[in-house]
């Protein structure tokens, strides 16, 4: 078993933050952990890595108890950037990891190239932007080619290009046999990363495969937007106008072909059709609609 969390419970003051979490991962995959702020995502990861005490339950990573620090030879945990030391350079951080992991120094250049941080490798962390710190954190957790990678909000502070790079690295890691458990608020990115999504709601885990919720959102570019609006309103098709230039609708509301037929019949030319999978966000809205923190 790669990851085994059995009946994990944690109380904070009088409230149960985690109410008996069970996770079993047998094959390398990417699992997304999703929930509103304060739902316990970070707490769960901190308990799994034995950073926090918990009241009940057991955690095994790669068949070993999480109290054994040797597991961190093959388990990495990307945490928030407060773990970095401002007065040291990125190189110092990576060298430290190499030293304690028994890795050759050549891994530093290698991983810096992989995450695109060669240009500021020798600079002090106190001068880093949020995105640069995220790059360093990523480099620190993948330098040892871990078998299990826990990531807490890895996309925080990343610009779109870096977010895409991060996503590609995670997909590569999955291909290389790494199990990734990632928490994120970026539901679009989660949609692109995995189908396996665990929602954390009121201290309990709802494990779901997005396949059953996945839906496509279509974006049609037409030659006459006003005319298209009139046609679809008349045909009682639920739609929205996106960015003042596209007609958008979900496939669960109406089939693409029906919309095309309505528009074509009235002489509206369709210039382009784009679509996006929106399973995570859709399911998230269903589960957490009305929650103050959503």
């Amino acid at each position: 078993m790669i990851v085994k969390v059995d009946g994990l419970k944690k109380k904070y003051k009088k409230d149960w933050v985690l109410k008996g979490i069970d996770i079993e991962v047998e094959e390398p995959q990417i699992i997304a952990l999703v929930g509103p702020n304060g739902s316990g995502k970070t707490t769960l990861m901190n308990c799994m890595t034995n950073l926090l005490t918990y009241d009940q339950g057991e955690v095994e990573l790669l068949g070993q108890k999480n109290s054994d620090t040797k597991i961190f030879k093959d388990v990495s945990y990307l945490q928030d950037n407060r773990i970095l030391y401002g007065t040291l350079t990125a190189y110092d951080h990576l060298k430290f990891i190499c030293d304690v992991q028994g890795l050759p120094k050549s891994k530093i250049e290698e991983v810096a190239k992989r995450v695109g941080m060669e240009s500021y490798l020798k600079k002090r962390v106190q001068n880093f932007s949020l995105g640069m710190k995220q790059h360093l954190l990523l480099a620190m957790v993948i330098i040892n080619d871990p078998k299990v990678l826990l990531m807490d909000e890895p996309l925080t502070g990343l610009d779109p290009t870096s977010a895409i790079d991060m996503r590609n690295i995670l997909l590569e890691l999955r291909e290389e046999g790494t199990t990734v458990i990632v928490s994120s608020h970026n539901l679009d990115e989660i949609d692109r990363l995995t189908n396996k999504i665990y929602f954390l709601k009121d201290g309990a885990l709802l494990k779901e495969s997005l396949e059953q919720f996945a839906t496509k959102e279509y974006y049609l570019t037409v030659d006459d937007l006003e005319k298209a609006k009139g046609v679809l309103e008349e045909a009682a098709v639920p739609f929205l106008i996106y960015n003042q230039e596209q007609v958008t609708f979900e496939e669960t509301d109406v089939e693409l072909q029906t919309v095309i037929d309505h528009l074509n019949k009235q002489g509206v030319a369709i210039l382009d059709i784009e679509n996006e999978r929106v399973g995570a966000e859709k399911r998230y809205r269903e589960l957490f609609e009305g929650d103050a923190s959503v």
Binding site: T69, R82, I83
Partner: peptide
């Protein structure tokens, strides 16, 4: 600062 987390998640 929680930087202890870095030390606590290393194999030593």
């Amino acid at each position: 600062s929680r930087s202890i987390n870095l030390l606590f998640t290393q194999p030593f």
